[in-house]
């Protein structure tokens, strides 16, 4: 079972103070902590679990600058056997479509039975790379996968639907699954893992090594171009309650009481 996992190095923004940069096309990235995309973290763990069960290899691939090596190193330390980084100045501003093309140009020449991606990336959240990649490779895919069972040449997966409902789908292998959070419990990086990973190389490829030209990537090769970003307007007229915790609590209770809820 040869498994390829596509991972992305993303900034952690849930608790960070986000600032929009002066060109209003992206956020200020300096000072943010980067790590493996949350969904990819589960995808990587699933790949390693499947390898541990069925044998084979795991290859982690990312499209990203040198900084993203730390995410690949993490993958190697957690059980990935190989890692590939695709990087080129001309890849900048690629959307999910262009990223999928870049990944495809490499993956099509690799042996694999299974490709795992995260459902979406924390930062841009398109949820497109996985199924587009499957389309380019001409292999079956399932998105939002919460359970995988493999048998000879086939797989049975649970897809998560709305409201907690799941559907079971059967797919032929090779296939691509985009992994939903909660499918497993990602392990910590161990010192043993880091030691082992140090002996593994990260292969670095750029545009010249790929069967792509510059119009396939970057803005030229993308469907989507971001014009402007801004802080979303409030949907409701939110009233902010200020003061010490005691004052805040008193106010909240007053409001709840006035609505007859206590």
């Amino acid at each position: 079972m040869n498994i390829i996992v596509c991972v992305k190095h993303v900034p952690e923004t849930a608790e960070a103070d986000i600032k929009i940069d002066s060109e209003e096309k992206s956020i200020e990235l300096s000072g943010l902590v980067f790590d493996i995309n949350e969904w990819d973290n589960y995808a990587l763990e699933e790949a390693v679990l499947l390898k541990e069960k069925h044998g084979g290899t795991v290859t982690a691939i990312t499209v990203g600058s040198e900084d993203s090596e730390s995410t690949l190193r993490k993958c190697l330390a957690r059980g990935s056997d190989k890692a590939i980084r695709l990087t080129d100045k001309r890849f900048e501003e690629s959307d999910s479509y262009a990223i999928a093309k870049i990944l495809h140009s490499v993956i099509k020449n690799l042996p694999f039975d299974l490709i795992l991606t995260g459902v979406q990336a924390d930062d841009v959240g398109y949820a497109m790379v996985g199924p587009i990649l499957a389309g380019l490779l001409g292999i079956p895919h399932a998105t939002m996968v919460k359970k995988i069972e493999l048998s000879d040449g086939a797989s049975k997966v649970n897809r998560e639907l709305e409201g907690g409902l799941e559907e079971v789908v059967e797919l032929k292998l090779p296939a691509l699954f985009s992994i939903q959070t909660g499918i497993n419990e990602p392990r910590y990086v161990s010192i043993m893992g880091i030691r082992k990973a140090m002996q593994k190389e990260i292969k670095v490829l750029s545009l010249g090594d790929l069967e792509l030209n510059k119009n396939d990537v970057g803005v030229a090769g993308s469907w989507i171009k971001i014009e402007k970003i801004y802080v979303p307007p409030a949907e409701k007229q939110t009233e902010y309650i200020e003061g010490s915790p005691e004052e805040v609590a008193t106010k909240i209770i007053e409001i709840i009481k006035s609505r007859g809820l206590i």
């Binding site: 190193r73 993490k74 330390a77 990086v189 010192i191 880091i194 140090m198």
Partner: peptide, 9 residues
């Protein structure tokens, strides 16, 4: 590199 990774882990 290894030390940085150990630190991060």
């Amino acid at each position: 590199k290894e030390q940085k990774e150990i630190q991060k882990a």
